[in-house]
């Protein structure tokens, strides 16, 4: 069923003399339309200068994270029909440098994620009793799509803040889980550094907003437990 909605989008170009403003676009969408579908309609028909990031359209690439009605979400898998009322508000992810409009620069996200950390892991057991000839294990990509939603939602992480943030700590813990001693030592040192897990204040916003069920807060708790000799905090 077609429906008329309004998208209220924060517009700004760094370096431009025009101050940030919200611009309202009216459009007609389908019941199934995602926020990304709506943005593409606007860019294709109303304003080609609208800046936003996108690629895979199915929550695998991690490029279209943004604030949707105030929450960190992926535009591609957020259906507009779930929102009551006729207006959806879109803003860029806070905590990252702005490229323009809804597009942010992800450079700070990778500050504490080593380029060489393994992005593959053993796949879940689906009940098979054999492996194909020539395949030593079934493998799959890690769940984290590096979208930045958790870093944006974290009250103690951000571009100018010292905390390495939930995504880096979750990735670090995954790497640690795949690493044998003594190669674990530098990873533990990094997790326990003054920019590491100690700065996490357990708000759990990271796990709440994660669109791909990484639950970074669990990884941080794992690291905290391991660094404190296996004792869990009360």
């Amino acid at each position: 069923m077609k429906r008329k909605i309004r998208l209220k989008i924060r517009r700004h170009r760094p370096g431009s003399e025009t101050p940030p403003r919200f611009e309202i676009f009216s459009l007609t969408i389908d019941a199934e339309s995602s926020v990304l579908d709506a943005l593409e309609m606007i860019q294709g028909g109303q304003d080609p200068s609208l800046m936003f990031r996108r690629s895979c359209h199915h929550s695998s690439c991690g490029t279209c994270g943004m604030l949707i009605n105030g929450d960190e979400r992926l535009a591609c898998v957020t259906r507009i029909s779930q929102f009551k009322g006729g207006t959806v508000t879109l803003e860029p992810l806070p905590g990252f440098p702005l490229l323009g409009d809804l597009a942010v620069d992800m450079t700070p996200f990778y500050r504490d994620i080593d380029e060489g950390w393994d992005y593959l892991r053993g796949a879940e057991n689906l009940g098979g009793t054999k492996l194909p000839d020539g395949v030593e294990r079934f493998e799959r990509f890690e769940n984290c799509i590096e979208c930045g939603c958790c870093v944006s939602a974290c009250p103690v992480a951000g571009e100018e803040k010292p905390f390495m943030g939930p995504a880096a700590l979750a990735a670090l813990n995954r790497e640690l889980q795949k690493t044998e001693e003594p190669a674990t030592l530098p990873l533990l040192e990094q997790a326990g550094s003054e920019r590491g897990e100690r700065l996490c204040n357990r708000t759990l916003a990271c796990s709440r907003v994660c669109p791909t069920a990484v639950y970074p807060a669990r990884h941080i708790l794992d690291l905290r437990t391991r660094l404190r000799g296996g004792r869990r905090e009360p």
């Binding site: 760094p14 440098p97 490229l99 620069d105 992800m106 450079t107 700070p108 996200f109 990778y110 500050r111 994620i113 080593d114 380029e115 590096e146």
Partner: peptide, 12 residues
Amino acid sequence: RCFFSDAPRGGL
């Protein structure tokens, strides 16, 4: 990841 970690800080 190097596409981002190689980039100069503060923007592409």
